[in-house]
Nucleic acid binder design. Sequence first.
DNA 1: CGTAAGTTTGACTTACATCAAGTTTTGTGG
DNA 2: CCACAAAACTTGATGTAAGTCAAACTTACG
Lengths: 258, 258
Amino acid sequence: MVATAALHSPLQQQRAVHPTLHAVRTTPSCSTCGVVSLCLPCSAEHEPGEYLDELVTQRTHLHKGDVLVHRGDRFTALYAIHSGSCKSVVTTTCGGEQIVGYHITGEVLGAEAIFKGVHDSTITVLEDSEFCVLQFERVQSLARRSDDFQRSFNAFLSREIGLERKLMLMLGTMRAEQRLASFLLDLADRYRARGYSSCEFVLRMTREEIGSHLGLKLETVSRLFSRFHQEGLICVQGREVKLLDRTGLQQIIDTADQ
Amino acid sequence: MVATAALHSPLQQQRAVHPTLHAVRTTPSCSTCGVVSLCLPCSAEHEPGEYLDELVTQRTHLHKGDVLVHRGDRFTALYAIHSGSCKSVVTTTCGGEQIVGYHITGEVLGAEAIFKGVHDSTITVLEDSEFCVLQFERVQSLARRSDDFQRSFNAFLSREIGLERKLMLMLGTMRAEQRLASFLLDLADRYRARGYSSCEFVLRMTREEIGSHLGLKLETVSRLFSRFHQEGLICVQGREVKLLDRTGLQQIIDTADQ
DNA sequence: CGTAAGTTTGACTTACATCAAGTTTTGTGG
DNA sequence: CCACAAAACTTGATGTAAGTCAAACTTACG
């Protein structure tokens, strides 16, 4: 397998064809990958890398705005983000849209489509990113042979349920300011787990997209950013965010009312 | 194993001790159970009953108000509702509560706790109900031996992710009337799948609980029931609901605005 | 049969949405 | 590299869906 990064044409900026048609780098390897420990929950004695190498045979490089998965695409693989970020968008019957997921390095996408065999969300790349392709056939086959992997994979699916539930709770019980504070702190935690700065990062989404993710309108998101900035909780400059007072943000979440 | 239904004391009404201390009926059997096909997604050639018999060794009978699982309990088993209904309640750090699930016959609970090994929601029984206890050890062991079951179990977990996402979408994008209409139609579909009447059923939750589930206040729920009744969409008499105009309810959901 | 829990309905408030300008940033082609 | 158009963002004024408060009514239950 040979690196063919030059395949990308400028036209792909807008709409991606099937990922397999994209550049495939030299054979990827989980055992030498810096982020693999994030992809799957793993037991202490068995580092996931040991048996995962056979799982990822392909890596796909996509550009900002490219679509990794279209709503309606047949489910064949899970995708682990090797680097970069993306959003999952669901369209409701009435034409409404919601961003149900904002995903960064080390997160694995697509598990919700196992059941139906069809993806019902569109996954769009938010910056130049690399994805590891986990053919589901191989995932299942490995689970059959390795009890340890089977356990990890179940834990991974269970974790996804918990993450969805957490978002659900946010949308069901929190006020606007609590939602944004929660979003920022959650993101900070995820960056920290990845060894990045946990208090200084660049948002890859517009105010409108953040709003869609939090069940708010872009104006509300913008106003809240300004307010948090004024109150000295954060420092915002466009999409660059610095968390200045994590305790203060946590207090906003923990405050029952007002 | 002998039926010991007489074990129940009136005191148990409020707080249940561990389910294993409750009445255990004669050895239950999936292969002769009417609702098993609902518990796990199954392939056409392999009816789930074939290999599931070894899975369920216990059945627990609980009363209205009993608690099946407390927040903080160690995860050891999944619970399938053989008959009856229950609610899953999550408490937020700030003391807020949300009902994250309203479950009826044939639904399987607890999968979100596999990852952490600890339940973070409290499951309370809404009417006298029977639960099949699926020790997770046995679930994993069976998955190891049966590819078909492994596949089903993955599909089940994936389906749960999708269900959470559906609720998330409701909370993130819908207005109050859309949420209630959606809740009623969803419930109707679930009853239909169980062979019950899909347009006439008894809600086992109070207005407050329904509100908590839909991210609304009880007064709003009550007003909406009254309005839907006036508009001839449904017929409500306390907790008894009759759906009179499913298309009308669907239209409420599909209407973008107003 | 009486108390408590649940429900309905009305009057009023509020958090967020909507509408509307104006400003800044981004990106593209000359 | 600059110019200029499009996209993204900010901020203010106003509207409204749903929340809050309150009182009366109904149902469940010991």
